[in-house]
Amino acid sequence: MKILVAVKRVVDFNVKVRIKPDGSDVDIAGVKMGINPFDENALEEALRLKERGKASEVVAVSLGGTANQDVLRHALAMGADRAILVETEVNLQPLGVAKLLKAVVEREQPDLILLGKQAIDSDAGQAGQMLAALLGVGQGVAISAIEIWDEEIVVTREIDGGTETLALRLPAVVTADLRLNEPRYVKLPNLMMAKKKPIQTISAAELGVDASPRLTQLKVADPPPRKPGIKVGSVQELVEKLRVEAKVL
């Protein structure tokens, strides 16, 4: 079984991003970037399936500019067999991502496609479901467990108020929740080795896909700040404030 894993390059989750002076977008120049956390879970799961003999090959794919090579190197260092960069300067949105990934899937013919459940920059949470729709295959969204049967996989996914279990016919698209696993640390020698591995580059134009954005970002802003709070000295004072000042008791 061949597994394709989509990895996005995003601002590191610890960074508090700032807005450009003209308010048009966030300013990510010089900001620490890395692999989207959920995509790391997706990749980890693919690697574990391979280590358990359930998968034969794990291919990582990223869409975007040449800078995305760093997340693909990270994926190779974690243990991916191959890496593909679909190069485009287009401002990608989930539908465009899904269309480009569909073209890659048609070339690579994987049995299972793993994505993260959500990119932590745009917080969209859509590309996997959209890809499944375009491919006409089943989807397992926000999964916390996966099991391979013969022609099917069984996934446990988070629903409001609990979890549900689904069987999906292969090929299928699955999106990883953070709870799926604990991604391995990348060891330095592996990172050095990954630097030497080739990354296959395909231009988006070559795939013949129109991935242009449908949404225009008009502006960005800081959310309204909360008014500053106070520290109370005791439990009694807290109860007093909640009752008299905040009137929430």
Binding site: F13, I120, K219, V220
Partner: peptide, 13 residues
């Protein structure tokens, strides 16, 4: 967006 650190105004076509 960005875990609620930023709000974006977007327009659909």
């Amino acid at each position: 967006i960005y875990a609620g650190n930023i709000t974006a105004t977007v327009e659909s076509s």
